[in-house]
Every structure is written in structure tokens, then in C-alpha cells.
């Protein structure tokens, strides 16, 4: 075993780390924004709102992320009309294809978390809101959202960690994220153990940080549930 190859290539690994974090944060932000209307639609009693949201969630939760990435990156590029449209500026870049796939995927999972949390809102709270004469929007803003988002924190923390681990799939479409960097190291030195154990440590460290952040969030927002 020879860990000097890892030390010699630390700049490559740190560049990979930067890309991994970028992919993770941008797709989480986009996915989160998208997931709120999706969750409201999926929890709605109105058929025309509920069914499209449910289909979206079903499709993105029902297919492997790797396949979603391959369809977006290699599949879409097969169509000439897309290659000649202005959209191609986005789809040409592996970076944006990865972000689109990750964002849509996490949006589906996150929407499902929020939908569950919305539906768990105690009936009495909503009845009280109605009694106060709150509109549907006011009910969401003052009653449903605050308690549902609090309830979702532990599950959402899980989703963030899953997304971190899902970013390795960027490595299959030419991006040099942490995993992509490890693959370059491996192919250069034929040292799979050293290459992958070192990026494994990077992922462990990031996961640890995420867990820590969510612990703080839970401590702050779920204080009233502490025993």
C-alpha cells in the first residue's frame, strides 16, 4: 500500500471535493424550492393538482437515478432539435445535466417527506384556523408550514445524506467530482484501495458535518419535543 499517491494528488481530490459540494448544494436548493409546490399539490384534494404531482413523484422515485442521468445526458442529446435549440447551452454541459437530474430526483423525495408532514397536521389546529377565518394560504403560512417543516427536519437530514452519496453518479458523465477524481487516481496508479478509501474518508467527513448541522437544527427547532 502506498498512500503517497494520495498525498501527491491532494489538489485533484480537493478540486473534486469542491465540485461534489457544488453539485450537492445547488441541486438541494433547487430541489427544495421545487418540492414545496409539489408537496402542496400532492397533498391537495383537487384531482387536477394532485395527479400530475403524484405522477412526477412516482416516476422520479420509481426509477434509478443513474438511469435518469443517462437519459438526461446521453439520451436527450440524441435529438437534433434539442441540439439546435437554445436549451442546448444547458444540456451540452455535463454539469447542468447532473444538477437537473439531482434536483428533480431530490425534489420528488423531498415532496414526499413534506406531503406526509402536511397530512400529519393535527385536525384541531386547522379547525381553529378556519374558525379564525384564515384563508387557505394563511392556513399554510401560519399553521401548516411551520409545524410540518419542523417535523420534517430529521427525515430531510436523511435525504441530504442520500443526495451526497448520489452525487457520485456525476462521475459517470465525465465530471471530476470526488469519485471521478478517485477513478482518475485508480486508472493512473492501479491502486483501487488507496484511491477509494481516501475519498471514502472525504465522504465520511462531509456526512459527519451534515449530521452535525441537522443536530443543531433539531436542537433549535424541535426544542419543545425534548424530554
Amino acid at each position: 500500500m502506498d498512500f503517497s499517491i494520495v498525498l501527491d494528488n491532494l489538489p485533484l481530490l480537493f478540486k473534486g471535493l469542491g465540485l461534489t459540494l457544488q453539485l450537492l448544494i445547488i441541486s438541494l436548493v433547487l430541489g427544495f424550492i421545487l418540492s414545496i409546490p409539489l408537496a402542496i399539490m400532492a397533498a391537495s384534494k383537487l384531482k387536477w393538482a394532485r395527479i400530475p404531482a403524484k405522477i412526477f413523484i412516482y416516476v422520479f422515485r420509481g426509477t434509478p437515478l443513474l438511469i435518469q442521468i443517462f437519459i438526461i445526458y446521453y439520451g436527450f442529446s440524441q435529438f437534433e432539435w434539442l441540439r439546435e435549440s437554445p436549451l442546448w447551452i444547458i444540456f451540452k454541459e455535463a454539469y447542468w445535466c447532473a444538477i437537473i437530474a439531482f434536483a428533480l430526483n431530490t425534489a420528488a423525495y423531498t415532496a414526499e417527506i413534506f406531503r406526509g408532514a402536511f397530512l400529519q397536521t393535527p385536525k384541531g389546529e386547522i379547525e381553529a384556523a378556519v374558525a379564525y377565518g384564515m384563508s387557505r394560504w394563511d392556513q399554510y403560512r401560519h399553521i401548516i408550514f411551520p409545524s410540518a417543516f419542523r417535523r420534517s427536519i430529521p427525515m430531510y437530514g436523511n435525504e441530504v445524506i442520500f443526495m451526497l452519496h448520489a452525487t457520485v453518479l456525476a462521475g459517470v458523465i465525465t465530471l471530476v467530482d470526488l469519485f471521478g477524481a478517485a477513478k482518475i487516481l485508480n486508472s493512473r496508479y492501479y491502486a483501487p484501495f488507496e484511491s477509494f478509501i481516501s475519498v471514502g474518508l472525504f465522504y465520511l467527513t462531509i456526512t459527519f458535518t451534515i449530521v452535525f448541522i441537522f443536530k443543531l437544527l433539531e436542537g433549535h427547532f424541535l426544542k419543545h419535543l425534548k424530554r
Partner: peptide, 8 residues
């Protein structure tokens, strides 16, 4: 080859 065909 796929990416060459795609113009990437």
C-alpha cells in the same frame, strides 16, 4: 463517441 455525436 456518443458525446462526439452530440457535439459535446
Amino acid at each position: 463517441y456518443l458525446d462526439l455525436n452530440a457535439g459535446r
